[in-house]
Design a protein around this nucleic acid. Structure first.
Length: 425
RNA sequence: GUGACUGUAGCUCAGUCGGUAGAGCGCCGGAUUGUGGAUCCGGCUGUCGCGGGUUCAAUCCCCGUCAGUCACCCCA
């Protein structure tokens, strides 16, 4: 039993086998393409950071740092596996004094994050996030652009009917003031609240707003609205954002109760949701928002920023399979040992010309070699035996058309490279 | 972290009101000494998740444990 468990993957951390990797590659390529189109460049930061970085950036009383972090001590360093990407990106931005080198920085990232939660559909302990940060632009235009491009990306990926939810929670001062206002309003009604919300009242009263419990909804009737505490500049920012989105043709829903769980957000806050039928409770595809105070808080200059992050596994659930791609273009089936040597040499030449190929070196019979060629969906097969070697030719089989022709060994590399370049199959 | 459900072949699942298991798909071989996906024929694979208890006997009943799934919490 002990031996059995030791060769198991860690709970909530999954293998991606070669059979499913094509779907990942497809989405990753689409994401990189979308980022490149918008002038974003990739940044890679470590998977491990000093734990206090996350505590400071994400917030001491958030669930993510309180109970979901993989934290450990190595010698005298308090370290943690990154639970999200923004903290590390901001740290790198500050550490390398990037603000001094350029006014605006557009960074994206793609990689695994770690959160010790109970696994569920679309929620894992190691999961992949794609995300981006735009530093140095306080204008609502950058908010709108980010949201619009995300919608285009999701649509290219094949997500059906994503919903964009939007809200503004004002500047850092506003957030604190509003949290206090909500707390003060609900304090006398504490007994009516759900058990969870009674705890939230002390810890983070703002979170009661997006509670799912019906009794909380009732208690919130008549609560102070966010709008009542936003200052003119905040309102202006939000109004302009909506205007830009309208012009861009993005449909959205303003949701005054959208708050989100990370403490660092200011002003714009958004979420993009996918189909509940597929994703279940984890239907949030992308979450993001502005965090104008964070760069300064982590020791940098006062630089505004906005970012987002999405879960790749959730996107995989929300999208259908792309087309199946052949594993290789050419499958070489040699009959006999001299033919295997011959095929290995030929394959090397083909690869040198950029042709992907697989040589079946098992010494199996032709029938089973061709079966493999079929399962790899190779468009071409090359059959070689003693007779072909003696004749200086090779049998080239079009595996889709089921036709076959003899081609001179001296010609075959050029012929196949040409045919494949034309994209025939 | 809380609660519910599930755990039988590589995959999807059936089954035994307790007497150690089976179907489809897949895989392998043959029909076709060197020609694939269709068809036909044949074949292989299981510590019935793991540990313990009850019993003459447990895959089936009971307890525990691990894993998975779903919901909550929270979030991507």
């Amino acid at each position: 039993m002990a031996e059995k468990t030791s060769v198991r993957a860690v709970k909530g951390m999954n293998d991606v086998l070669p059979g499913e990797i094509a779907r990942w590659h497809r989405l990753e390529a689409l994401f990189r393409r979308s980022m490149a189109l918008t002038g974003y460049r990739e940044v890679r930061t470590p998977f491990v950071e000093h734990k206090p970085l996350f505590v400071r950036a994400i917030g001491e009383v958030t669930d993510v740092v309180e109970k979901e972090m993989y934290a450990f001590t190595r010698h005298h360093d308090e370290l943690a596996l990154r639970p999200e990407g923004t903290a590390g990106a901001v740290r790198a931005y500050v550490e390398h004094k990037v603000a001094n080198a350029e006014p605006v920085s557009r960074w994206y990232y793609l990689g695994p994050m770690f959160r010790a939660e109970r696994p569920q559909a679309g929620r894992y302990r190691q999961f992949w996030q794609y995300g981006a940060e735009c530093f140095g632009d306080a204008g609502p235009g950058s908010d709108a652009e980010m949201i619009a491009e995300l919608c285009a990306f999701l649509s290219a990926a094949g997500v059906t009917a994503p919903r964009v939810l939007l809200n503004s929670i004002g500047g850092p001062g506003t957030r604190v003031a509003y949290t206090e206002a909500v707390r003060a309003y609900l304090e006398p009604k504490k007994a009516q609240l759900s058990e969870d919300s009674q705890k939230r009242l002390e810890k983070n009263a703002l979170r009661i707003l997006d509670s799912k419990a019906p009794e909380d909804h009732a208690a919130l009737e008549g609560a102070p609205t966010l709008e009542s505490v936003l200052d003119e500049a905040d309102k202006d920012h939000f109004k302009n954002l909506l205007g830009h989105l309208d012009a861009l043709g993005v449909t959205y829903e303003v949701d005054p109760k959208l708050v989100r769980g990370l403490d660092y957000y200011t002003r714009t806050l958004f979420e993009i949701k996918g189909a509940k039928e597929k994703l279940g409770a984890g239907d949030t595809l992308i979450g993001g928002g502005r965090y104008d105070g964070m760069v300064e808080q982590l020791g940098g200059a006062s630089v505004p920023a906005i970012g987002f992050a999405g879960g790749l596994e959730r996107l995989l659930i929300a999208t259908d399979d792309g087309e199946k791609k052949p594993v290789v273009s050419v499958f070489l089936a040699p009959m006999g040992s001299p033919a295997t040597t011959y095929a290995l040499v030929l394959a090397r030449e083909l690869r040198a010309h950029g042709v992907t190929c697989d040589v079946d070196t098992r010494g199996a019979n032709l029938k089973s070699m061709l079966r493999r060629a079929t399962s790899l969906e190779a468009p071409y097969g090359i059959l070689v035996g003693d007779a072909e070697i003696a004749a200086g030719v090779v049998e080239v089989k079009d595996l889709n058309a089921r036709t076959q022709e003899k081609i001179a060994r001296s010609e075959v590399v050029r012929v196949l490279a040409d045919r494949l370049a034309k994209g025939t199959p």
